[in-house]
Design a protein around this nucleic acid. Structure first.
Ligand code: SF4
Ligand code: SF4
Lengths: 163, 163
DNA sequence: TGAACTCGGACCAAATCGGTCCTGTTTCAA
DNA sequence: TTGAAACAGGACCGATTTGGTCCGAGTTCA
């Protein structure tokens, strides 16, 4: 239920790649596609999308290519993914355009609204530098405790690292 | 990217409905379909799936129908949804069967594994009684702090409520 | 017996998705 | 000046998934 689209994966990989090569130059689509083993045509679309989102800067002409327009630490996960995920919501009715035919009498709507807000908040804090080293992803956020413990309820009493 | 399927929504609604009518009797598909305005045929499939998952008990024959086989507080969100979501993972490679062609050299795999584990943990604690009153969903779990604060990073230093 | 149920496979149309192709347009460099 | 290199983006296509329908078979109670 929460699988990201293939384009989103390509986008994340591309950001990773460009972040690692923090050289002053730019990287072309063909170059990046070959290095990461991604179909060039579709990667072109993905990079276009990222550029439109303001994450990349394009240099046309010979010797051109793409470049991160921001330090990787300031690029958020949701920004990278959003251009390729038409709806970032748990249920259709959360989306702006239209929604669902069953309007107010849906008993699922309110709980789902809460869930939706919760999930977006979880992802809002993720920055792409965490994806360069899973270590950061684990310990740079609250995820360490979330994964390590059986329940977040214990988090409140985690202050003491007794045995 | 994390929208649940329509069948899952029907399943959640059905559980809600059956939980509210905690009468000793059973509810037939037709009855439930009409009450909740769901296509009867597809609702039948959904209830079958829930029964196979052990959440419902079926009574065949005239006057038959479905009944919750457990108190609603002991039914978890993931249990309800799982029969209708083929993959509960962020990326294909997390799934058991097959996965992705790009094996170990994918720089996205490790971070995604962490994300996946994190998300599953978040949902693991949700029980269906929370869906009956959004109030519970907000305050019965850690979601209150998650939604209320600007970042969960503050959670670790929340022990002292000093301004 | 027969009506009211559950059970479950077969089937279908629409939407989505991943991917390809093909035609501009811009820019730099020989 | 010329042309190759690169981005820009629309059109298209096949495979998969999804939501939904239909129908026949078993089961139980009145
Ligand atoms: S109104 Fe109810 S059925 Fe419709 S999309 Fe929202 S939660 Fe789902
Ligand atoms: S291996 Fe990489 S590209 Fe393949 S599904 Fe996993 S994260 Fe995505």
């Amino acid at each position: 239920m929460f699988k990201v689209s293939r384009k989103s994966e390509y986008a994340l990989i591309a950001i990773q790649h460009l972040a690692r090569r923090a050289r002053d130059g730019v990287t072309s689509v063909a170059e990046l596609a070959q290095a990461e083993n991604i179909p060039p045509d579709i990667l072109a679309k993905v990079l276009q999308g990222l550029k439109r989102a303001g994450l990349l800067t394009a240099a046309k002409g010979a010797g051109g290519g793409y470049r991160l327009s921001r330090p990787v630490k300031e690029i958020h996960f949701l920004e990278v993914v959003r251009p390729f995920e038409e709806q970032l919501c748990v249920v259709s009715c959360q989306n702006d355009h239209g929604g669902c035919e069953r309007g107010g009498d849906c008993t699922l709507r309110d709980p789902m609204t809460v869930l939706n807000a919760y999930m977006l908040r979880q992802f809002a804090d993720l920055t792409m530098d965490m994806f360069l080293s899973p270590h950061k992803l684990l310990h740079g956020t609250h995820m360490d405790v979330a994964i390590g413990e059986t329940s977040l309820g214990r988090l409140t009493s985690t202050a003491h690292p007794a045995d």
